[in-house]
């Protein structure tokens, strides 16, 4: 009967697949942080096996297509590289990694944003300048008027 060998093969296939799945899931690429102000540095990490050679990270996005070679063995067992974003156009970038043995290691995205806070306020002026000027003018005019009246009165008294 042929049913038994088929069942055994299927079971072996499922078992093998289960064993291999974690390894396949490990083949991954991450970018940290996923959001950086322009000029900041992001770390590209791939789960490529360092024994297979350097990984190549391809960075594509707004007016950019560049390759970055891994420089460091990552603490978790992969490979990583730092990417300095000075001069990058604002927007979202995709990173795809290729391992030293030519296999793909997945992709990730990161976003380059404006720097820091937003200068969106100048402080409303209370408009005190005009009020003070008007007040000063009136007080000055009153003082001048009082002075003129006092002089006239003095002159009239002498006469």
């Amino acid at each position: 009967m042929k049913t038994q060998p088929v069942l055994v093969s299927a079971a072996l296939g499922v078992g093998l697949g289960t064993l291999l799945l974690p390894a396949a899931a490990l083949a991954d690429t991450t970018v940290s942080p996923a959001t950086t102000p322009v000029g900041g540095t992001v770390v590209l990490t791939s789960t490529c096996n360092p024994n297979s050679g350097d990984a190549i990270f391809r960075v594509t996005g707004p007016d950019r297509d560049q390759n970055v070679r891994s420089t460091t063995a990552a603490a978790g067992g992969g490979l990583s590289a730092e990417l300095f974003t000075a001069g990058f156009t604002l927007g979202t970038y995709t990173v795809t990694a290729t391992c030293g043995d030519g296999s793909s290691s997945g992709s990730a995205t990161f976003t380059v944003t404006p720097i820091g806070g937003v200068p969106a306020g100048g402080g409303a002026d209370a408009g005190n300048g005009g009020v003070v000027a008007a007040g000063g003018t009136l007080v000055g005019a009153a003082a001048a008027g009082a002075l003129v009246l006092a002089r006239r009165r003095r002159a009239a008294t002498r006469a």
Binding site: V131, V132, A134, G135, G136, T137, L138, V139, G140, A141, A142, A143, G145, A146
Partner: peptide, 9 residues
Amino acid sequence: AGVAGLGLL
């Protein structure tokens, strides 16, 4: 004028 001016100041 004097009173108004002082008020504005």
